[in-house]
């Protein structure tokens, strides 16, 4: 039997898979590609919600996700990475195996938590929310395990993907929020862009490790 939430769950599940994939990619360009795939999946998921909930204005959010996070940002970051000559391997703080196990634990945790709490909500929302939380937690894990500024940006945007998935999965959440989330991603990119540029200017590297040597109290 085919139901509206099957497709929603399929897309959310695929997003979760790309979240895991980002955990083990060790080249920056591969991380960027995987992120683009996740953003495109997000836009499909949001578009599907627009059809299933009969809320056409969600297509705006879908288009923003596709255009901005699926195409423009990955392209811009890739150009920057090539220009700075850092398309090499990214140092990881935690090994791939450990990161994977942690990711699995976080996924299990979010399913156990959300499914237990939302017993009264409809199926559409429940599992979607659980997967969104898993995506958010894995993105956080990625931000912790990577040393590189660009992968931290990608981790943060992946976190926003999870948030938008959760927000659109909640039936009838007013448009103002979705637009503002997209808007804040734009600002975030602006801020990030400025910072990456400045970090480059100062350290000749985009490695966060270089930043750790400066401590206000040790001067």
């Amino acid at each position: 039997m085919f139901a509206a939430y099957d497709i929603a769950h399929l897309l959310a599940g695929l997003m979760l898979v790309t979240g895991f994939a980002m955990l083990y990619q060790d080249r920056i360009s591969a991380v960027l590609t995987t992120f683009a795939v996740q953003a495109i999946l997000l836009s499909c998921a949001v578009a599907w919600q627009a059809v299933a909930q009969n809320r056409p204005h969600l297509f705006i959010t879908a288009a923003l996700a596709l255009g901005l996070k699926g195409l423009v940002i990955p392209y811009a970051l890739r150009r920057m990475v090539l220009k700075l000559g850092m398309h090499r391997e990214v140092e990881q703080v935690v090994g791939v195996a450990k990161a994977f196990i942690l990711g699995l634990c976080l996924t299990a945790l979010s399913f156990m938590l959300v499914l237990r709490v939302t017993v009264k909500a409809d199926v559409f929302t429940r599992e979607g929310l659980a997967m969104a939380l898993a995506i958010i937690l894995i993105a956080l894990l990625m931000m912790i395990t990577r040393r590189n500024a660009v992968t931290q940006i990608v981790g943060f945007m992946s976190l926003e993907n999870g948030l938008i998935l959760a927000a659109t999965g909640a039936r009838g959440m007013p448009l103002v929020v979705e637009v503002s989330v997209a808007f804040s991603v734009l600002i975030a990119l602006f801020v990030f862009g400025v910072f990456v540029f400045r970090i480059r200017e100062r350290f000749d590297s985009v490695d966060i490790e270089a930043l750790d040597q400066v401590r206000g109290d040790q001067r």
Binding site: Q152, F156, L163
Partner: peptide
Amino acid sequence: RTPAAIEAAWKYFILGSVGISLAFFGTI
């Protein structure tokens, strides 16, 4: 734009954004 200022801003940005994202999930 001193190294210390950039470190501070970066740390603030990452921690602040993560905090505010979690708050958004709570809002949902």
